[in-house]
């Protein structure tokens, strides 16, 4: 190693000027294969007040569990219609919403399957560098053995799970709590 990575700085309150050209809340479009899902939620601060100047970046595998990336060597099909990236800002009431497909299971290096998940990068005014978390699907049989979920203390795992919308299939709720009793689990890697 000759150099050290450049230090992070907050995105500040005005990031939409530079980021809105690549805002994308419809991650799968109409042509991607897979089970459609819709996720809605809010980002809340330590006083449970809505955060209106946050942005979420989503990265996920396609319905077969393969990433649209040259380093994914798994023997699974690519979906030419699916890139797997989203970028969604919060609104004045701290709310965000996006639609996508449920990803397939992605293998660990030793061949064990990870539970289906989305990875999430979270940035906002007041956050000096990105936080990352994951979104998992409630009731998925692979959750029980997921290598990453096992590293989270059981009482906090629910912060990573989507909550099914009572009335409508395929619709889920997921809030991000920066602090407090329901503080979302954030990862470091």
């Amino acid at each position: 190693m000759k150099l050290r990575a450049t230090t992070w700085q907050t995105v500040g309150p005005f990031f939409s000027i530079g980021m809105k050209h690549r805002y994308l809340a419809d991650i799968a479009g109409t042509d991607s294969a897979g089970e459609r899902i819709a996720v809605a939620g809010r980002v809340l601060d330590g006083d449970e007040a809505p955060i209106s100047d946050a942005v979420l970046e989503i990265w996920q595998a396609n319905t077969y569990g393969k990433y649209a990336h040259s380093e994914d060597a798994q023997d699974k099909p690519l979906d030419p219609a699916f890139l797997g990236h989203g970028r969604i800002p919060t609104q004045r009431d701290g709310a965000f919403a996006f639609t996508t497909i449920k990803p397939g299971s992605v293998d660990l290096p030793d061949g064990r399957p990870q539970a289906p998940h989305l990875v999430v990068g979270l940035m906002m005014r007041g956050l000096l560098r990105r936080l990352t978390t994951r979104i998992y699907f409630p009731g998925d049989p692979l959750n029980e053995s997921d290598e990453i979920l096992q590293r989270v203390e059981p009482a906090r795992r629910k912060t990573l799970l989507l909550a099914p919308h009572v009335a409508r299939t395929g619709r889920f709720l997921w809030d991000v709590h920066m602090q407090g009793e329901s503080e979302t689990v954030f990862f470091d890697f």
Binding site: T10, D45, G46, D47, A49, I51, W59, A61, Y67, A68, H69, S70, E71, D72, Q74, L83, G84, H85, V106, D107, L108, P109, Q114, H117, V119, M124, R125, G126, L127, L128, L131, R134, E147, I148, R151, V152, R156, M178, Q179, E183, T184, V185, F186, F187, D188, F189
Partner: peptide, 28 residues
């Protein structure tokens, strides 16, 4: 000193995880 960080920074330690395909891939 950056006041906005007071209510927007996590209070619990981050959970360290190994990097998987999900972390070493990304949008092109």
């Amino acid at each position: 000193p950056y006041v906005s960080s007071l209510r927007r920074s996590p209070t619990k330690p981050l959970v360290h995880i190994p990097q998987t395909l999900s972390e070493i891939t990304g949008p092109s």
